[in-house]
């Protein structure tokens, strides 16, 4: 038997992707991690070890801002998990129902906001909710609920939730599409067998379909997690880099932006900025690992 030939084609076909990914993802990532280990002393870059992290977590001013941003971020994520994903599943279940007319229209209409720019979404919702020109107060007035209106984006207690819900509105199309695809891929034989056994309607959804789409829901959760902890645009567009009122909408992304690039009279500090970016990377890494090792391995998969 001849020795197995070296399979060069594998390396050749992988090379473009590996090179591009390394150049635009891996190298910047490590450059950022590296940057966080240095600091500026008299305009010269000096190796500082973990000093920046000590400042971030040890200095009460830095750590207070950091924990505030992390807490807000966690709430932002929780709203998405509790609102966006269940609604996404519900919409997908409705869409996959064979009796629904104009399914293609609904599918498109719900998905369209996803491709809109954050700038447009932020601006449009700011106008809708504006206490001065917005249509929200007017519409509430029409149904006699004017008293329920408050300037949501300007109130400390509501601003973050309002923004999270705007983001849900924008992105609900993504879980809907993924779940929809998963539902379509369930073979008809399985559903017919269920019907033979008398499992129909709601109980068919709960007992047959839901277990089969759980892996998709898992993937959506992790995408939501990564997306939310990297979020920045919407808050920046709607509330500015100071994430008002009183930092109630400050998330890790806006905190990173302010620190890294500076704001108004505050000069940018690339090293502390990189430290925050590293902390964000760590948080996301831990979250993804928990999912991969604790949750995904326990999900049961069904082969058809």
């Amino acid at each position: 038997m001849a020795r197995k030939a070296v399979r060069w084609h594998i390396a050749v076909f992988l090379a473009p992707a590996v090179l591009i990914y390394t150049a635009i993802m891996i190298i910047p990532l490590f450059a950022t991690l590296n940057l966080s280990l240095f600091t500026l002393v008299d305009r010269a870059r000096v190796f500082a070890g973990l000093d920046n992290f000590r400042t971030l977590f040890g200095d009460p001013r830095w750590s207070e801002t950091f924990w505030n941003a992390l807490g807000n971020n966690a709430w932002f994520f929780l709203v998405h998990m509790l609102v966006q994903n269940p609604i996404g599943v519900l919409l997908a279940a409705l869409l996959s129902s064979p009796r629904l007319r104009m399914a293609a229209f609904y599918r498109t209409a719900i998905f369209v906001p996803t491709i809109l720019s954050f700038v447009i979404v932020g601006f449009v919702w700011k106008l809708i909710l504006s206490p001065i020109w917005g249509i929200a107060p007017g519409m509430l007035d029409m149904v006699g609920l004017k008293s329920l209106f408050t300037p949501w984006l300007g109130k400390q207690e509501y601003a973050l939730t309002t923004l999270a819900l705007i983001s849900v509105w924008q992105f609900v199309g993504i879980p809907m599409m993924l779940i929809y695809a998963a539902l379509l891929s369930i073979p008809d034989e399985v559903l017919e067998a269920a019907e033979m056994d008398g499992v129909t309607g709601m109980s068919q959804f709960w007992k047959i379909k839901l277990p089969l789409i759980l892996p998709s829901i898992g993937i959506i959760s992790i995408l939501t997690f990564v997306g939310n902890f990297n979020a920045f645009d919407l808050i920046y567009v709607a509330q500015g880099a100071l994430a008002g009122p009183d930092f109630a909408t400050d998330i890790l992304g806006t905190f990173l932006y302010r620190t890294f690039f500076g704001f108004q009279l505050q000069l940018g500090d690339p090293h502390m900025g990189a430290t925050i970016a590293t902390a964000m990377f760590g948080i996301i890494l831990v979250g993804v690992c928990i999912y991969l090792f604790l949750i995904q391995t326990r999900l049961r998969r069904y082969q058809f």
Binding site: K126, S130, P131, I132, W133, T150, P151, L153, G154, K155
Partner: peptide, 14 residues
Amino acid sequence: GDGFEAQTYPDSQN
């Protein structure tokens, strides 16, 4: 004005 908490700078100008 009413709802000044959510009033932006361009709002005030207008």
